[in-house]
Computed example of a mutant assay.
Amino acid sequence: MVKPLIQVDEKGFYGKFGGAYIPEMLHPNIEELRENYESITASQSFQKEFKSLLKDFVGRPTPLYFASRLSEQYQAKIYLKREDLCHTGAHKVNNTVGQIILAKKLGKKRIIAETGAGQHGVATATVCALMGMDCTVYMGELDMARQKPNVERMRILGAKVVPATSGSKTLKDATNEAMRQWINNPVDTHYIIGSVVGPHPYPEMVARFQSVISEEIKWQLKSKEGTENPDIVMACVGGGSNAAGAFYHYYNLDQVRLIAVEAAGLGIHSGKSAATTALGTPGILHGSKTLLMQTEDGQVTEPHSISAGLDYPGIGPVHAHLFDTGRAEFLAVEDEDAMKAGIALSRTEGIIPAIETAHAIHALNMIEYKTDDIIVINLSGRGDKDLDTYIKWGGY
């Protein structure tokens, strides 16, 4: 696997951001991971099992689809990386497959996870069923209501779904509950974090498992366009795992524009937003130093997005670094515009996207590009989970 120049240092930092800010009781868990994950994941046995499951269970490689009608509409060459066609319906399973093999090799018997939109929860429940491991998923009570189909999928797969009833009852609070549970069960339990967040080594580990996305984009684009490098790669960002995967093999290539799209909610300055780079300041969130939305005295501000997967008050430290250095451009899209873009893609290309991805689709209206530019948008998940939200919105 090619390591990008934007690398984490030995203490888990990307520039100013990262690290492991954890309670003493979690130190053994994190140290066990930090000391073992690189050697385990680099081993021949791990790689053989990981690649086999990605191919035969997940269904990789996912297509790089030339969206002809969308391209005609926007006057550019637009490709969609079809992560929605992964087993379980999103990119999340790339990471859970990697982490379940790692957990098994570490001798763990029980898995816990957090989830927002439910896709990571479903992907975790899926691999636990595959490996015969006990699974508990923490999910915000609000998210459980708006993502009910995914809750039932997790339960059918054998997972216990525990509601987080504190705070905004969304992803932040589910993560808090999962962290507390892990502190109480350090020996036999592995916490499968679903995004490039949390204490080191999680952000780097998740990014590596997701880097298969950009690894495939390179050879797929070479066969279609004669070049491995698009002009622009775009992806939505909550915590940011799908974007980290899509950007990974392009970090070093300044000629490739990286565009990350956050959720502006009801407006960046409305008080109902999740646009971290526009509103955030450096601080500690879920075990790492990153950019997060917080009050002057350091209390986390409640985020808002119509998409449960972007409803998070921070971003992963790698994205905070990309923003801080100017390597990536960050945009923010409001709820209404994202919903319209989701319907537009459905009717232009016959693909109903997850509302998270719909934010990135709308961002085509916010950037400048040339008519011969190649634009790759990472289509992080399918919209099945969001049908109730689409229906309640009703703008179609």
Results as ranks from 00 to 15, higher is better:
Gly240Glu: 03
Leu331Arg: 09
Glu228Ile: 00
Gly15Arg: 00
Asp335Gln: 09
His249Phe: 00
Ile40Val: 14
Leu80Ser: 09
Ala243Trp: 00
Lys385Thr: 10
Val151Tyr: 05
Thr277Met: 06
Gln181Tyr: 15
Ile30Gly: 03
Gly132Ile: 09
Gly267Val: 12
Gly226Phe: 02
Asp84Ala: 14
Asp386Phe: 07
Gly140Pro: 08
Lys92Ile: 12
Ser270Phe: 08
Phe50Ser: 11
Ala235Val: 08
Ala243Pro: 02
Leu292Trp: 00
His249Gly: 00
Arg34Gly: 13
Glu32Met: 15
Tyr138Glu: 04
Met139His: 09
Gln47Phe: 01
Ala145Met: 14
Ser52His: 12
Ser52Asn: 13
Gly381Ile: 09
Lys77Pro: 04
Ile101Thr: 02
Gly314Ile: 04
Ser43Asp: 10
Gly107Asp: 10
Gly267Pro: 10
Ile375Leu: 04
Phe330Asp: 01
Gly342Tyr: 07
Phe57Asn: 11
Glu49Thr: 13
Cys236Val: 13
Phe57Ala: 12
Gly107Ser: 12
Glu152Phe: 14
Gln299Val: 13
Lys222Arg: 14
Ala129His: 08
Ala338Arg: 06
Glu225Arg: 09
Leu157Ala: 08
Gly298Val: 04
Asp134Cys: 10
Arg382Lys: 13
His91Gly: 08
Gln47Glu: 13
Phe50Ala: 11
Ile78Tyr: 00
Ala263Asp: 06
Leu292Pro: 02
Tyr369Leu: 10
Ala117Asn: 01
Val8Ile: 13
Ala363Arg: 02
Val233Lys: 01
Glu24Tyr: 05
Asn185Gly: 06
Gly394Gln: 12
Lys224Ile: 03
Tyr191Leu: 10
Gly350Cys: 12
Asn365Ser: 14
Leu364Asn: 03
Met1Tyr: 10
Val256Cys: 04
Lys105Leu: 12
Lys340Leu: 15
Pro23Cys: 11
Ala332Pro: 06
Met1Ala: 14
His190Gly: 07
Ile343Trp: 08
Phe13Glu: 09
His200Ile: 06
Ile284Cys: 01
Met1Ser: 14
Ile377Met: 06
Glu35Ser: 15
Pro317His: 02
